[in-house]
Amino acid sequence: MTLAQFLQQTINGLSLGSLYALLAIGYSMVYGILRLINFAHGEIFMLGAFFAFYTFTFTGLPWWVAMLVSMVLTAGAGLLLERLAYRPLRDSPRTTVLITAIAISFLLQNAGQMIFGAQPKPFAPPSLLLKPLQFELAGNRIFLRWTGVLVPIITLALLYLLTLLVQRTRIGKAMRAVAQDTEVARMMGINVNFVVAITFVVGSALAAAGGVMWGMTFRNIQPLMGIFPGIKAFIAAVVGGIGSLPGAMLGGYLLGLAEVWLVALLSLFQSNAFTLTTYRDVLVFAILILILLFRPHGIIGEGTAEKV
């Protein structure tokens, strides 16, 4: 692999990793506070992409406005999901809530196919971002997309805002308190329901941003688009240390880079009889299982002490 190819794949990996990170944070935050794995999070991500698609199809607003609109709408969807499906089951056994989450995931996939149509839709990013970014490096041409550069930048900005929210604000402090011990936090006068609602709002808004940028990167969206990214982001959250925000970010970037690097490497050693790149998920997940064998609580997770 030439240096140019390596650099190109690294930027692709950072871009993919950003999207996983945005999704993984939603899993990690909800788990940190409710000990619930919200399997419908991938579908929230899908809704984010569709809300943005319909916003700029029908209103022609600039893409970043459409993205903000979609973040607000998707946050509302997340809030509704928490209020209608999860809050009534707050005191039920964990498995009941888990099964509900899986059911909601299927429900949204199928409702999406009925309402949006099962066929993929072309997702047109702004023409400015369509321009290829090409340059020569050590005699090799590098082909990048402006979206590939923009996605990590937007993601890092959003992650910075999230860190400020969690570390510097009263609501952030309340979130950390609820994550540590819900009962004690309640006794201290923290409105737990409000904190949980805010968690869903923030997680869903970030997933929406991820969904919109996923659409801009891969140029098409469909109602089942949330399944694989959702599962992968969940795994990223576990590998990073579920419940930990820096862990989720780290896990997302690690997974994105591992996938892209591995594929670039594999594509150099293949023949007709055996198309190695098809095995990308097999190999990536084998590596992740190895990591978990040596660090069962994830890279940043610390046994029982869990943060938001």
Partner: peptide, 24 residues
Amino acid sequence: EVNIQDVNEGQTDFSAQVAALQAF
């Protein structure tokens, strides 16, 4: 000379296959 790349129904991210394309 032929190089075969497999894709899945519903796949949206073809970066793996595109990497193979650039290499081939």
